[in-house]
Design a protein around this nucleic acid. Sequence first.
RNA 1: GGGGGCGUAGCUCAAUUGGUUAGAGCGCUGCCCUGUCACGGCAGAGGUUACGGGUUCGAGCCCCGCCGCUCCCGCCA
Length: 603
Amino acid sequence: MKRTHHCNELRPAHIGQTVTLDGWVHSRRDLGGLIFIDVRDREGRTQSVFDPSDLPKDLFEQAAALRSECVVRITGKVRARPDGTNNTKIPTGEVEVMASALELLNYAEVLPFPVDDPEVASKVNEEMRLKYRYLDLRRPEMVRNLRVRSKAATATRFFMDEQGFLEVETPILFKSTPEGAREFLVPNRREPGTFYALPQSPQQFKQILMVGGVERYYQIARCFRDEDQRADRQLEFSQIDIEMSFIEREDIYNLIEGLLKRIWKSTLNIDVLTPFKRLTFQEAINRYGIDKPDTRFGMELVDFTEEFRGSKFKIFAGAVANQGVVKAINAKGLAGVTQGQMDTMTEYAKSFGAKGLAFIKVEGGEWKSPIVRFFSDAEKAALTSKLAIEEGDLILFAADQWLTACEILGKIRLYCAEVLKGQGKLSVPADRFDFLWVIDFPLLSFDKEQNRWYSSHHPFTAPVAEDIPMLKSDPKKVRGQHYDIVVNGVELGGGSIRIHQPDVQKMVFEEVLQIAPDETKLRFGYMLEAFRYGAPPHGGIALGFDRLIAILCGTPSIRDVIAFPKTAKGTCLMTESPSPVSARQLRDLHIEVKAARQEPPAV
RNA sequence: GGGGGCGUAGCUCAAUUGGUUAGAGCGCUGCCCUGUCACGGCAGAGGUUACGGGUUCGAGCCCCGCCGCUCCCGCCA
C-alpha cells in the first residue's frame, strides 16, 4: 500500500512530512491559477493544493480535468495553511497537502446523484439511493451507520465471550415448520417435491444446543420471514440470538442489561442506567395501551369506569354495564387540534374497533364537546381532578372492553404525541433511552374463529410455575415466563424460559393447543425426542439487531442501517432480484411454473 | 389482500388550480479567474411531465388503468 495516511489524519504535527493520500475527489475548486482538491476516504477529507508555479504543466492540467468522485492518489508535502484560510469545519482544516504528484487511479463518470452535499444527498429519493447503493454508502452518514453497526457487533461478541458464551452457527437450510411467519422454501433437487425452509429464527436449534450441553450459546443470526415489510421489518434481518442453561428470568435480565450497557457505551459513549424498569403486560396496557410503551412522555391512560357506571351518558354507562371500561387521556395543549387531525384520529380509532372518538376541547374557559351536557357535576369534577384538566387541553375517551379501549387510546396517545412534537409543545431529547422489561404476558390467547387457544409467544414458552395447574382449567389466567425488552416504544427483543420437561411440552401441544399427536410428531418429533434424553432447564432471548442499530443511529428505518436492503415489495433495485430463471434450472428442481412467467434473458 | 402519499431536466423542487414556447437552484459542457472550501463570473446544452388509455377547442393538472417508491392496517408463533 502506497497510502501513508488516511484523510482524517493530518494535523499541524505532520507539517513538513511528505505524505500520500488515496481517495475520492470530494470537491474540486478551480480558481484558474490555483486548484484545490479535497480528497475523501471513509475517515474524512483533506485539502490538497495544485500550484502551477512549482508543477509541470501536464500535471496541473491533469488536476484541472478531474471531476467529482474520481479515485486519485496524491503525494505532497504537508504544510500549514496561510493565515486566515483555516477551515474550522473539518478536523484537517489547519493543514493542506501541497501536491507534487497525482495519479488518477480511476475516472468517474458524472454521478446520478450527488454524494458530496449532505443537504441534497439526504433528500435524494430512496429508489435512487437503493439502485446506486454503492454511491449512497459513500455518504458520511451511511459510513457512520455501518461503523456503528460494526462496533455494536464487536461489542456484542466481546461481551458474550466474556460471559462464557459460545458463538455457534446454525443451518440456513432448515426444515419447514409452518407455525408463525410464512417461510421461504428452497426446492430440493435430489428428491422431487421436498423442500428446505429458511429459518424464521434459530429457535429450535438453539434449544437443541442446550440439550447438547453447550450451556451458553449466542449468534448474530440471519433470519428470514416471507411477510409484508415495514420501515422496521425486512424479509431478511439479523438477531442477536441467545440461549442459556440452568437459569431463571432474572439471569436473562441481568445479561441483557449488561450487554446493552456495553453496546451503548462502545457506540455512543452513553452510560445506560441499570437495572431497567419492569412493567407487567397488564400494567403496560392499562397505562399506555400498548405492550411496548414509549415512556419518554406522560399522557397516560386514566380509568373512569367507576365514575361512569350508571352515568346518564348511555354510551359510557352501557360499556361499563357490558363488563367494559371507560378510559381517557389528556393531550395537554392540543385543544387547538384541527378538524382534519380530529378526523384522522377518529378514523384511526374506528380502525381499531371504536365506534367513535369522544372528546372535550378545553378552550376559552369552557368545555367544548358534544357529549359534556350528559355529564353530572360529580363526573366533571372527577375528570378535572384525575386528568388535571387545564385551559388548552384536549381530552379523548374510549369506552369498550378493557383491551380494546386501552389499545385505541394507546394508538391515539402516540398520534397526539407526534402532533404535539410537530407543534413544538412536546420535546424528547435525542439521547434519551427509556429501557424497560415487559413481563408476565399471558401464555395463551384465544382464537375466536378457530375456537382454540394459541401461544401468545411460541409453544416452547414455559408457564409461570404456580400457574401450571390452571393450564387446563383456566388457560386465560396462565402467565408465561416471557419477557420483552422495550426502548422508546420499540420492541427490541423478546424471549422466554422454555419448557424443558417432555411431558409438559406434550401436554401444551396436544391438550392446550390441540395439535393432533401425529402432527406434533411430524413437526416437532425430533425436539420432543431430544428432550427425553436429558434436557437442562433453559431459556433465552433474541434482540432485533437491525432495530437496535437504527435506534443507536437515530433513524426510523432499518434500511438505513443495512448495507443492501430490499424495497417494501421485497426487491433489490441494484441487482434486480428476484428474477426469472432458466427452464433448465426449473427442470433440475422438478418445478413447473403455472403462472404466466417472464422468460429470463438468453445467456 | 386493503387504505393513504409521491412520481415533472442527471438531482431537489416550482408551474397563479384546465390556457401561450413547462421554470428555478444544484449538477453538466465551454470560456474567464492564484487562497478557495456550498469558490466566484459569463455563456450554453438538457424534458415522451413514470407508462397506457379517456374527457376537452385545449391536460403536468380532471377520469380510468398500469408500473415503481414509500407510510399504515391485515400479517410478522
